[in-house]
Design a protein around this nucleic acid. Sequence first.
RNA 1: GGAGGCGUGGCAGAGCGGUUGAAUGCACUGGUCUUGAAAACCAGCAAGGGUGAAAGCCCUUCAGAGGUUCGAAUCCUCUCGCCUCCGCCA
Length: 421
Amino acid sequence: MIDIKNIREQQSLIQDSLRKKDKSISLDNIVEADINLRELTKKLNDLQSEQNQQSKEIGILKSQGKSDESVFAKLKKLSNTIKDLEDEHRTKSKILKDMLLEIPNIPHDSVPIGASEKENVIKKDCSKKKKINFKPKSHIDIAQDLDLIDFEAGAKISGAGFPLYKGNGALLERALINFMIDFHLKNYNYTEFFTPFLVKEKSAITTGQLPKFYEDMYHTEKDKLYLIPTAEVPLTNIHQDDILEVSDLPKYYLANSACFRREAGSYGKDTKGLLRVHQFNKVELVKFVHPTSSYDELESLAKQATKILDLLELDYRIIELCSGDLSFAAAKCYDLEVWAPGEEQWLEVSSCSNFEDFQSRRGNIRFRDDNGKVDYLHTLNGSGLATPRIFAALLETHQNKDGSITIPIALQPYMGLSEIK
RNA sequence: GGAGGCGUGGCAGAGCGGUUGAAUGCACUGGUCUUGAAAACCAGCAAGGGUGAAAGCCCUUCAGAGGUUCGAAUCCUCUCGCCUCCGCCA
Protein backbone atom coordinates (compact mmCIF):
# COMPACT_ATOMS: atom_id res chain seq x y z
CA MET A 1 0.00 0.00 0.00
CA ILE A 2 1.25 3.41 -0.86
CA ASP A 3 1.11 6.08 1.83
CA ILE A 4 -1.89 8.28 1.18
CA LYS A 5 0.17 11.25 2.36
CA ASN A 6 2.64 10.70 -0.45
CA ILE A 7 -0.14 10.42 -2.96
CA ARG A 8 -1.65 13.60 -1.61
CA GLU A 9 1.61 15.51 -1.83
CA GLN A 10 2.95 14.26 -5.13
CA GLN A 11 0.14 12.76 -7.08
CA SER A 12 1.49 13.30 -10.58
CA LEU A 13 4.95 11.99 -9.75
CA ILE A 14 3.59 8.83 -8.22
CA GLN A 15 1.06 8.36 -10.96
CA ASP A 16 3.79 8.60 -13.60
CA SER A 17 5.83 6.00 -11.77
CA LEU A 18 2.87 3.66 -11.43
CA ARG A 19 2.15 3.94 -15.11
CA LYS A 20 5.50 2.37 -15.83
CA LYS A 21 3.90 -0.71 -14.33
CA ASP A 22 0.36 -0.29 -15.59
CA LYS A 23 -0.60 2.40 -18.07
CA SER A 24 -4.23 2.47 -17.04
CA ILE A 25 -3.67 3.61 -13.46
CA SER A 26 -5.17 6.89 -12.33
CA LEU A 27 -5.07 8.34 -8.83
CA ASP A 28 -7.72 10.98 -9.41
CA ASN A 29 -10.47 9.09 -7.61
CA ILE A 30 -8.25 8.43 -4.65
CA VAL A 31 -7.16 12.00 -4.28
CA GLU A 32 -10.73 13.19 -4.50
CA ALA A 33 -11.90 10.64 -1.94
CA ASP A 34 -9.08 11.69 0.36
CA ILE A 35 -9.99 15.37 0.20
CA ASN A 36 -13.57 14.48 0.81
CA LEU A 37 -12.76 12.27 3.74
CA ARG A 38 -10.54 14.81 5.41
CA GLU A 39 -13.24 17.45 5.25
CA LEU A 40 -15.60 15.01 6.85
CA THR A 41 -13.00 14.10 9.48
CA LYS A 42 -12.57 17.70 10.46
CA LYS A 43 -16.28 18.26 10.77
CA LEU A 44 -16.65 15.12 12.84
CA ASN A 45 -13.72 15.98 15.09
CA ASP A 46 -15.13 19.38 15.89
CA LEU A 47 -18.49 17.95 16.86
CA GLN A 48 -16.87 15.21 18.94
CA SER A 49 -14.82 17.80 20.70
CA GLU A 50 -17.94 19.74 21.57
CA GLN A 51 -19.66 16.63 22.79
CA ASN A 52 -16.73 15.60 24.96
CA GLN A 53 -16.55 19.00 26.56
CA GLN A 54 -20.23 19.24 27.34
CA SER A 55 -20.39 15.73 28.70
CA LYS A 56 -17.51 16.53 30.95
CA GLU A 57 -19.31 19.57 32.28
CA ILE A 58 -22.37 17.51 33.02
CA GLY A 59 -20.19 15.11 34.92
CA ILE A 60 -18.75 17.89 37.02
CA LEU A 61 -22.15 19.43 37.71
CA LYS A 62 -23.56 16.09 38.65
CA SER A 63 -20.77 15.41 41.11
CA GLN A 64 -21.71 18.68 42.79
CA GLY A 65 -25.36 17.62 42.80
CA LYS A 66 -26.31 20.39 40.38
CA SER A 67 -27.40 18.39 37.38
CA ASP A 68 -29.26 20.31 34.74
CA GLU A 69 -31.32 17.97 32.58
CA SER A 70 -32.49 20.64 30.19
CA VAL A 71 -29.34 20.33 28.05
CA PHE A 72 -29.95 16.65 27.43
CA ALA A 73 -32.30 17.16 24.52
CA LYS A 74 -29.79 19.38 22.76
CA LEU A 75 -26.98 16.93 23.38
CA LYS A 76 -29.10 14.04 22.20
CA LYS A 77 -29.43 15.81 18.88
CA LEU A 78 -25.70 16.41 18.74
CA SER A 79 -25.09 12.79 19.58
CA ASN A 80 -27.31 11.67 16.71
CA THR A 81 -25.60 13.97 14.27
CA ILE A 82 -22.26 12.54 15.31
CA LYS A 83 -23.52 9.01 14.88
CA ASP A 84 -24.64 9.76 11.34
CA LEU A 85 -21.32 11.36 10.52
CA GLU A 86 -19.46 8.43 12.02
CA ASP A 87 -21.38 6.07 9.78
CA GLU A 88 -20.55 8.15 6.77
CA HIS A 89 -16.92 8.36 7.86
CA ARG A 90 -16.67 4.63 8.31
CA THR A 91 -18.10 3.96 4.89
CA LYS A 92 -15.92 6.50 3.15
CA SER A 93 -12.72 5.38 4.90
CA LYS A 94 -13.43 1.83 3.89
CA ILE A 95 -13.94 2.87 0.29
CA LEU A 96 -10.70 4.83 0.26
CA LYS A 97 -8.79 2.00 1.89
CA ASP A 98 -10.19 -0.50 -0.61
CA MET A 99 -9.07 1.73 -3.46
CA LEU A 100 -5.60 2.00 -1.98
CA LEU A 101 -5.35 -1.77 -1.63
CA GLU A 102 -5.84 -2.12 -5.37
CA ILE A 103 -2.94 0.18 -6.24
CA PRO A 104 0.31 -1.66 -6.98
CA ASN A 105 3.70 -0.76 -5.61
CA ILE A 106 5.86 1.87 -7.27
CA PRO A 107 8.78 0.51 -9.28
CA HIS A 108 12.20 1.52 -8.00
CA ASP A 109 14.15 4.03 -10.10
CA SER A 110 16.68 1.41 -11.08
CA VAL A 111 14.05 -0.82 -12.69
CA PRO A 112 14.29 -0.92 -16.48
CA ILE A 113 11.22 0.50 -18.14
CA GLY A 114 9.22 -1.80 -20.35
CA ALA A 115 5.74 -2.99 -21.10
CA SER A 116 6.10 -6.75 -20.98
CA GLU A 117 8.47 -9.59 -20.24
CA LYS A 118 10.05 -9.05 -23.65
CA GLU A 119 11.77 -6.02 -22.23
CA ASN A 120 13.24 -7.77 -19.23
CA VAL A 121 16.99 -7.46 -18.96
CA ILE A 122 19.31 -10.44 -18.75
CA LYS A 123 21.52 -9.38 -15.92
CA LYS A 124 23.83 -12.32 -15.94
CA ASP A 125 23.98 -15.53 -17.91
CA CYS A 126 25.65 -18.19 -15.85
CA SER A 127 25.09 -21.12 -18.12
CA LYS A 128 28.05 -23.27 -19.01
CA LYS A 129 26.10 -24.80 -21.84
CA LYS A 130 26.80 -28.35 -20.82
CA LYS A 131 26.96 -30.41 -23.95
CA ILE A 132 24.49 -33.21 -24.38
CA ASN A 133 25.57 -35.22 -27.37
CA PHE A 134 22.27 -36.99 -27.91
CA LYS A 135 18.71 -35.79 -28.25
CA PRO A 136 17.66 -34.94 -24.69
CA LYS A 137 14.36 -36.27 -23.45
CA SER A 138 11.82 -34.08 -21.73
CA HIS A 139 11.38 -34.47 -17.99
CA ILE A 140 7.96 -35.97 -18.63
CA ASP A 141 9.43 -38.88 -20.54
CA ILE A 142 12.28 -39.30 -18.11
CA ALA A 143 9.94 -39.27 -15.11
CA GLN A 144 7.74 -41.85 -16.74
CA ASP A 145 10.60 -44.07 -17.91
CA LEU A 146 12.19 -44.09 -14.47
CA ASP A 147 8.81 -44.28 -12.70
CA LEU A 148 9.42 -41.09 -10.73
CA ILE A 149 6.06 -39.39 -11.18
CA ASP A 150 2.62 -40.81 -11.88
CA PHE A 151 0.82 -37.94 -13.58
CA GLU A 152 -2.26 -40.03 -14.38
CA ALA A 153 -2.77 -41.14 -10.81
CA GLY A 154 -2.29 -37.58 -9.60
CA ALA A 155 -4.96 -36.45 -12.05
CA LYS A 156 -7.26 -39.22 -10.90
CA ILE A 157 -6.89 -38.22 -7.29
CA SER A 158 -7.02 -34.46 -7.60
CA GLY A 159 -7.07 -33.39 -11.22
CA ALA A 160 -4.53 -32.14 -13.70
CA GLY A 161 -1.65 -30.23 -12.18
CA PHE A 162 -1.32 -32.38 -9.09
CA PRO A 163 1.68 -34.60 -9.73
CA LEU A 164 2.07 -37.77 -7.68
CA TYR A 165 5.74 -38.30 -6.91
CA LYS A 166 6.69 -41.91 -6.48
CA GLY A 167 9.65 -43.98 -5.34
CA ASN A 168 12.92 -42.26 -6.23
CA GLY A 169 10.86 -39.33 -7.49
CA ALA A 170 9.42 -38.76 -4.03
CA LEU A 171 12.90 -39.24 -2.61
CA LEU A 172 14.38 -36.70 -5.01
CA GLU A 173 11.71 -34.16 -4.08
CA ARG A 174 12.42 -34.63 -0.40
CA ALA A 175 16.17 -34.53 -0.98
CA LEU A 176 15.93 -31.24 -2.85
CA ILE A 177 13.93 -29.64 -0.06
CA ASN A 178 16.25 -30.84 2.68
CA PHE A 179 19.34 -29.89 0.73
CA MET A 180 18.07 -26.36 0.15
CA ILE A 181 16.93 -25.79 3.72
CA ASP A 182 20.22 -27.07 5.11
CA PHE A 183 22.20 -24.94 2.69
CA HIS A 184 20.49 -21.71 3.79
CA LEU A 185 20.63 -22.57 7.46
CA LYS A 186 24.29 -23.54 7.33
CA ASN A 187 25.52 -20.59 5.31
CA TYR A 188 23.24 -17.75 6.31
CA ASN A 189 21.59 -16.58 9.45
CA TYR A 190 18.06 -17.84 8.93
CA THR A 191 15.49 -19.06 11.38
CA GLU A 192 13.52 -22.01 10.09
CA PHE A 193 9.75 -22.15 10.40
CA PHE A 194 7.10 -24.63 9.52
CA THR A 195 3.95 -22.64 8.92
CA PRO A 196 0.21 -23.07 8.58
CA PHE A 197 -0.85 -23.62 5.00
CA LEU A 198 -4.24 -21.97 5.44
CA VAL A 199 -4.37 -18.31 6.28
CA LYS A 200 -6.91 -15.60 7.06
CA GLU A 201 -7.93 -13.07 4.47
CA LYS A 202 -6.06 -10.38 6.37
CA SER A 203 -2.77 -12.21 5.96
CA ALA A 204 -3.22 -12.51 2.22
CA ILE A 205 -3.98 -8.80 2.07
CA THR A 206 -0.70 -8.00 3.81
CA THR A 207 1.40 -9.69 1.18
CA GLY A 208 -0.69 -8.43 -1.72
CA GLN A 209 -2.50 -11.51 -3.01
CA LEU A 210 -5.82 -10.07 -1.91
CA PRO A 211 -8.03 -8.35 -2.77
CA LYS A 212 -6.82 -8.19 -6.34
CA PHE A 213 -5.91 -11.78 -7.06
CA TYR A 214 -8.79 -13.56 -5.38
CA GLU A 215 -9.29 -15.72 -8.47
CA ASP A 216 -5.79 -17.15 -8.21
CA MET A 217 -6.26 -18.53 -4.73
CA TYR A 218 -7.87 -21.65 -3.40
CA HIS A 219 -10.06 -20.95 -0.44
CA THR A 220 -12.26 -22.84 1.96
CA GLU A 221 -15.85 -21.76 1.90
CA LYS A 222 -16.96 -22.42 5.44
CA ASP A 223 -14.03 -21.04 7.33
CA LYS A 224 -13.03 -18.34 4.86
CA LEU A 225 -9.43 -19.44 4.89
CA TYR A 226 -7.08 -19.28 1.94
CA LEU A 227 -4.54 -21.88 0.89
CA ILE A 228 -1.15 -20.25 0.69
CA PRO A 229 0.34 -19.72 -2.76
CA THR A 230 3.73 -19.37 -1.06
CA ALA A 231 5.15 -19.48 2.46
CA GLU A 232 5.82 -15.77 2.01
CA VAL A 233 2.28 -15.22 3.27
CA PRO A 234 2.55 -16.87 6.69
CA LEU A 235 6.20 -15.88 7.15
CA THR A 236 5.61 -12.20 6.48
CA ASN A 237 2.54 -12.15 8.70
CA ILE A 238 4.46 -13.47 11.67
CA HIS A 239 5.10 -9.82 12.45
CA GLN A 240 1.72 -8.46 11.48
CA ASP A 241 0.94 -5.50 13.80
CA ASP A 242 4.31 -5.80 15.53
CA ILE A 243 6.76 -3.04 16.34
CA LEU A 244 10.26 -4.55 16.18
CA GLU A 245 13.30 -3.02 17.81
CA VAL A 246 15.88 -1.73 15.36
CA SER A 247 18.42 -3.98 17.07
CA ASP A 248 16.34 -6.99 15.99
CA LEU A 249 16.82 -6.14 12.33
CA PRO A 250 17.50 -7.68 9.95
CA LYS A 251 15.44 -10.79 10.56
CA TYR A 252 15.87 -13.69 8.15
CA TYR A 253 13.11 -16.30 8.05
CA LEU A 254 12.82 -19.45 6.02
CA ALA A 255 10.17 -22.09 5.46
CA ASN A 256 9.44 -24.97 3.20
CA SER A 257 5.80 -25.29 2.34
CA ALA A 258 3.38 -26.68 -0.14
CA CYS A 259 2.13 -23.91 -2.41
CA PHE A 260 -1.31 -23.86 -3.94
CA ARG A 261 -2.16 -21.90 -7.06
CA ARG A 262 -5.28 -22.05 -9.14
CA GLU A 263 -3.42 -20.69 -12.17
CA ALA A 264 -6.64 -19.09 -13.32
CA GLY A 265 -6.30 -17.66 -16.78
CA SER A 266 -3.53 -19.98 -17.82
CA TYR A 267 -5.66 -22.94 -18.82
CA GLY A 268 -4.16 -24.72 -21.75
CA LYS A 269 -0.66 -23.42 -21.02
CA ASP A 270 1.99 -25.91 -19.96
CA THR A 271 -0.68 -28.40 -19.08
CA LYS A 272 1.66 -31.34 -19.13
CA GLY A 273 4.48 -32.18 -16.80
CA LEU A 274 5.91 -30.09 -14.02
CA LEU A 275 6.11 -26.67 -15.59
CA ARG A 276 2.82 -25.36 -14.25
CA VAL A 277 1.13 -27.20 -11.41
CA HIS A 278 -1.51 -26.41 -8.81
CA GLN A 279 0.46 -27.73 -5.88
CA PHE A 280 4.19 -27.65 -5.42
CA ASN A 281 6.86 -27.29 -2.79
CA LYS A 282 9.01 -24.27 -2.26
CA VAL A 283 11.62 -23.16 0.21
CA GLU A 284 10.90 -19.51 0.79
CA LEU A 285 13.20 -16.86 2.22
CA VAL A 286 11.78 -13.76 3.85
CA LYS A 287 13.69 -10.76 5.19
CA PHE A 288 12.58 -7.96 7.50
CA VAL A 289 15.10 -5.17 7.14
CA HIS A 290 15.88 -1.55 7.87
CA PRO A 291 14.70 0.66 4.98
CA THR A 292 18.19 1.90 4.23
CA SER A 293 19.56 -1.56 3.57
CA SER A 294 16.82 -3.20 1.57
CA TYR A 295 18.49 -2.90 -1.83
CA ASP A 296 21.71 -4.41 -0.56
CA GLU A 297 19.60 -7.16 0.96
CA LEU A 298 17.98 -7.78 -2.40
CA GLU A 299 21.34 -8.30 -4.08
CA SER A 300 22.49 -10.72 -1.41
CA LEU A 301 19.18 -12.56 -1.52
CA ALA A 302 19.41 -13.16 -5.24
CA LYS A 303 23.04 -14.20 -4.95
CA GLN A 304 22.17 -16.63 -2.22
CA ALA A 305 19.50 -18.32 -4.33
CA THR A 306 21.85 -18.74 -7.28
CA LYS A 307 24.30 -20.69 -5.14
CA ILE A 308 21.76 -23.49 -5.00
CA LEU A 309 21.73 -23.62 -8.78
CA ASP A 310 25.53 -23.71 -8.88
CA LEU A 311 25.57 -26.62 -6.49
CA LEU A 312 22.92 -28.46 -8.48
CA GLU A 313 25.08 -27.88 -11.56
CA LEU A 314 22.30 -26.31 -13.56
CA ASP A 315 22.54 -23.68 -16.27
CA TYR A 316 20.81 -20.50 -15.22
CA ARG A 317 20.51 -16.81 -15.81
CA ILE A 318 19.46 -13.85 -13.74
CA ILE A 319 16.72 -11.67 -15.15
CA GLU A 320 16.04 -8.15 -14.03
CA LEU A 321 12.34 -7.60 -14.50
CA CYS A 322 11.21 -4.53 -16.36
CA SER A 323 8.55 -2.28 -14.89
CA GLY A 324 5.68 -3.80 -16.84
CA ASP A 325 6.52 -7.34 -15.74
CA LEU A 326 6.96 -6.55 -12.06
CA SER A 327 4.49 -8.20 -9.76
CA PHE A 328 1.84 -6.17 -7.95
CA ALA A 329 3.66 -5.76 -4.66
CA ALA A 330 7.28 -5.56 -5.86
CA ALA A 331 9.39 -2.45 -6.24
CA LYS A 332 12.17 -4.43 -7.85
CA CYS A 333 12.60 -8.05 -8.71
CA TYR A 334 15.13 -10.52 -10.06
CA ASP A 335 13.98 -13.79 -11.54
CA LEU A 336 16.22 -16.81 -11.75
CA GLU A 337 15.68 -19.05 -14.73
CA VAL A 338 17.17 -22.47 -15.33
CA TRP A 339 17.69 -24.02 -18.70
CA ALA A 340 15.73 -27.17 -19.43
CA PRO A 341 17.44 -28.84 -22.38
CA GLY A 342 14.59 -31.30 -22.98
CA GLU A 343 11.91 -28.67 -23.03
CA GLU A 344 14.35 -26.29 -24.68
CA GLN A 345 13.24 -23.37 -22.61
CA TRP A 346 14.17 -21.26 -19.63
CA LEU A 347 12.16 -22.00 -16.51
CA GLU A 348 11.54 -19.48 -13.78
CA VAL A 349 12.52 -21.09 -10.50
CA SER A 350 12.89 -18.11 -8.23
CA SER A 351 11.70 -14.58 -7.81
CA CYS A 352 13.60 -12.32 -5.47
CA SER A 353 11.77 -9.13 -4.67
CA ASN A 354 12.08 -6.02 -2.61
CA PHE A 355 8.66 -4.79 -1.51
CA GLU A 356 10.05 -1.81 0.38
CA ASP A 357 7.29 -0.70 2.77
CA PHE A 358 4.43 -1.89 0.58
CA GLN A 359 3.68 -5.04 2.54
CA SER A 360 4.70 -3.67 5.92
CA ARG A 361 2.21 -0.86 5.50
CA ARG A 362 -0.55 -3.32 4.63
CA GLY A 363 0.35 -5.61 7.50
CA ASN A 364 1.28 -2.83 9.91
CA ILE A 365 4.78 -4.20 10.44
CA ARG A 366 6.95 -1.53 11.97
CA PHE A 367 10.19 -0.91 13.83
CA ARG A 368 11.40 1.59 16.37
CA ASP A 369 14.59 3.33 15.30
CA ASP A 370 17.40 4.60 17.52
CA ASN A 371 15.54 7.81 18.19
CA GLY A 372 12.45 5.96 19.31
CA LYS A 373 10.61 6.88 16.14
CA VAL A 374 8.27 4.25 14.76
CA ASP A 375 8.32 3.57 11.03
CA TYR A 376 7.52 0.86 8.53
CA LEU A 377 10.33 -1.56 7.84
CA HIS A 378 11.09 -3.13 4.48
CA THR A 379 10.27 -6.69 3.52
CA LEU A 380 11.85 -8.89 0.88
CA ASN A 381 11.42 -12.40 -0.22
CA GLY A 382 12.90 -14.88 -2.57
CA SER A 383 12.36 -18.46 -3.51
CA GLY A 384 15.22 -20.60 -2.54
CA LEU A 385 13.86 -22.44 -4.57
CA ALA A 386 10.67 -23.89 -6.01
CA THR A 387 11.05 -27.60 -6.62
CA PRO A 388 9.00 -28.72 -9.62
CA ARG A 389 10.88 -26.79 -12.25
CA ILE A 390 14.18 -27.56 -10.53
CA PHE A 391 13.14 -31.19 -10.55
CA ALA A 392 12.42 -30.97 -14.28
CA ALA A 393 15.61 -29.09 -15.16
CA LEU A 394 17.65 -31.46 -13.05
CA LEU A 395 16.31 -34.52 -14.84
CA GLU A 396 16.79 -32.97 -18.24
CA THR A 397 20.25 -31.56 -17.55
CA HIS A 398 21.74 -34.59 -15.85
CA GLN A 399 20.27 -37.29 -18.04
CA ASN A 400 22.59 -39.76 -19.65
CA LYS A 401 22.33 -41.50 -22.97
CA ASP A 402 21.37 -44.78 -21.29
CA GLY A 403 18.37 -43.09 -19.68
CA SER A 404 19.85 -42.79 -16.20
CA ILE A 405 20.19 -39.60 -14.19
CA THR A 406 23.41 -38.55 -12.49
CA ILE A 407 22.76 -36.94 -9.13
CA PRO A 408 24.84 -33.78 -8.51
CA ILE A 409 27.44 -34.31 -5.83
CA ALA A 410 25.89 -31.79 -3.45
CA LEU A 411 22.62 -33.71 -3.51
CA GLN A 412 24.04 -37.21 -3.18
CA PRO A 413 24.15 -37.26 0.64
CA TYR A 414 20.45 -36.42 0.65
CA MET A 415 19.61 -39.08 -1.90
CA GLY A 416 21.90 -41.82 -0.72
CA LEU A 417 22.37 -42.45 -4.44
CA SER A 418 24.72 -41.19 -7.11
CA GLU A 419 22.36 -41.98 -9.91
CA ILE A 420 18.78 -42.89 -10.65
CA LYS A 421 18.25 -45.61 -13.18
C1' G B 1 -19.33 -30.38 19.22
C1' G B 2 -21.07 -29.28 24.77
C1' A B 3 -20.15 -26.39 29.70
C1' G B 4 -17.53 -22.53 31.99
C1' G B 5 -13.64 -18.69 32.56
C1' C B 6 -10.60 -14.83 30.52
C1' G B 7 -8.85 -10.89 26.85
C1' U B 8 -6.49 -3.30 29.71
C1' G B 9 0.13 0.13 27.70
C1' G B 10 6.83 -3.71 26.20
C1' C B 11 5.45 -7.14 30.49
C1' A B 12 2.73 -7.78 35.17
C1' G B 13 -1.61 -5.81 37.16
C1' A B 14 -5.74 -1.89 39.23
C1' G B 15 -9.87 0.27 37.34
C1' C B 16 -17.74 2.95 41.35
C1' G B 17 -21.10 4.66 33.72
C1' G B 18 -18.70 11.18 34.40
C1' U B 19 -11.40 15.73 33.65
C1' U B 20 -9.28 7.61 32.93
C1' G B 21 -4.94 7.56 27.76
C1' A B 22 -5.97 4.83 31.89
C1' A B 23 -3.49 3.71 39.40
C1' U B 24 0.69 0.74 40.85
C1' G B 25 4.99 -2.42 39.99
C1' C B 26 8.77 -4.17 36.53
C1' A B 27 11.37 -3.07 32.15
C1' C B 28 13.28 1.00 29.25
C1' U B 29 15.45 6.25 28.54
C1' G B 30 17.65 10.76 30.68
C1' G B 31 19.52 13.05 35.17
C1' U B 32 21.48 13.43 40.46
C1' C B 33 24.80 10.70 43.51
C1' U B 34 29.53 7.46 42.69
C1' U B 35 36.61 6.84 40.86
C1' G B 36 33.26 3.35 37.97
C1' A B 37 29.10 0.17 38.57
C1' A B 38 25.02 -1.24 41.60
C1' A B 39 21.51 0.72 44.90
C1' A B 40 18.72 5.03 46.04
C1' C B 41 16.33 9.42 44.43
C1' C B 42 14.20 12.76 40.47
C1' A B 43 12.17 13.04 35.58
C1' G B 44 10.42 10.95 31.02
C1' C B 45 8.12 6.83 28.64
C1' A B 46 1.62 4.17 23.59
C1' A B 47 0.05 4.21 18.58
C1' G B 48 -2.75 6.43 14.63
C1' G B 49 -5.22 10.72 12.38
C1' G B 50 -6.20 16.14 11.73
C1' U B 51 -4.22 21.16 12.19
C1' G B 52 0.15 24.12 12.74
C1' A B 53 6.56 26.89 10.81
C1' A B 54 6.98 25.10 15.75
C1' A B 55 5.39 24.70 20.65
C1' G B 56 0.88 23.17 21.01
C1' C B 57 -4.25 22.08 20.30
C1' C B 58 -8.18 18.64 18.74
C1' C B 59 -9.96 13.60 17.52
C1' U B 60 -9.65 8.12 17.70
C1' U B 61 -7.95 3.66 20.07
C1' C B 62 -8.57 -0.63 26.83
C1' A B 63 -9.09 -8.12 21.46
C1' G B 64 -12.50 -6.76 16.94
C1' A B 65 -17.44 -5.13 15.16
C1' G B 66 -22.13 -3.19 16.45
C1' G B 67 -25.64 -1.29 20.33
C1' U B 68 -27.66 1.35 25.01
C1' U B 69 -26.53 6.42 27.15
C1' C B 70 -25.94 13.48 27.24
C1' G B 71 -21.41 10.48 28.44
C1' A B 72 -18.67 3.48 27.97
C1' A B 73 -12.33 0.27 29.55
C1' U B 74 -16.77 -0.13 32.78
C1' C B 75 -23.73 -2.17 30.66
C1' C B 76 -25.87 -5.31 26.19
C1' U B 77 -25.21 -8.32 21.44
C1' C B 78 -22.18 -10.70 17.95
C1' U B 79 -17.25 -12.20 16.18
C1' C B 80 -12.23 -13.59 17.07
C1' G B 81 -8.34 -15.38 20.27
C1' C B 82 -6.57 -17.86 24.76
C1' C B 83 -7.44 -21.17 29.10
C1' U B 84 -10.11 -25.27 31.97
C1' C B 85 -13.46 -29.52 31.96
C1' C B 86 -16.37 -33.19 28.94
C1' G B 87 -17.06 -35.59 24.07
C1' C B 88 -14.72 -36.95 19.32
C1' C B 89 -10.19 -37.77 16.65
C1' A B 90 -4.68 -37.94 14.07
